[in-house]
Amino acid sequence: MTTAIDILILRALFSNPSRYVSGEDLATQAGVSRAAIWKHLDQLQKIGYPIEAQPHQGYRLLAPPDVWCADEIAARLPDPAPGEPNWRVLLFQETASTNDLVWREAQNGAQEGLVIIAEQQSSGRGRQGRQWQSCAKSGLYASALLRPHWPLSQITRLTIVSSLAVAEAVEKLCGKEVRIKWPNDVFMRGKKLGGILTEVQADPEAIRFAVVGIGLNVSQTKSDFPDALHAIATSLKIETGHDYRRADLLIAILGTMQRHYREPFEVVRQAWSERCFSLGQTISVRTPAGQLVGQAVGLDENGALLLRAESGRITPITAGDILPA
């Protein structure tokens, strides 16, 4: 299978959702015979895209199920503006961890924009080796390679950029409010929907590369979560009753992320602050230096949480977990 032809066909089908696309036009564009186009369409049918063929009219895509296919994502991603990452997506059926795969490619010199997605992760993880529950087909697991030319002190901005991109994209697609818990957790109706793990390799002065890992609960039902997580974790299916396609979600996330990545941080900080449910409230934060209580008043220029103590003194927090109220 030539991936370029699949991408061309999928782009034509997805950008004309209710219209028929002529096989002849596709053949001309791809520079191949109509028979070759038909073979590709047949293959796409086999992997799950319902394509309707109408004599003399052409081909039309019916509502597609949750096919997880790198070519579709490549076909539908918006073109990057100058300076934005040019996403290139690779799919693995199963991997220990998508972050590990991207990390290895980055060390071998892969360019900014590589995205690895997996159907299933056997050892997905969060911070400090904490396990991330990864179920086959029910969650979105993706890791993206970025090479920001920022001073190392600004690397924390990436957490703010990524969590904002996930929250905005999911909200736009689902029409339900998505909020953020500082610094990286994405919430719907008070329960955690997803998280982000960013891993960085740096010289003392410069960032070599950053791997942003995104985990989002999509179609899990209550019984997919261990009892202990029912009160704190959720999925889009549980919250909305709908089945969402992971490809739609990832395309929306990557499209939003590429924009925020190059935007002035001030713009990102403003949008992020409006979504954060901790700002303005009195919170307790467990930090490596001990527990702190104060009012969350905002983010500093690199995304650290500004906590105002009763004395009025403001402390920037870069490490810590906000404790449940």
Partner: peptide, 11 residues
């Protein structure tokens, strides 16, 4: 070194 859930490997 971790800051804001960004894990920075130091060499």
């Amino acid at each position: 070194i971790e800051a804001m859930k960004v894990m920075n490997e130091i060499k």
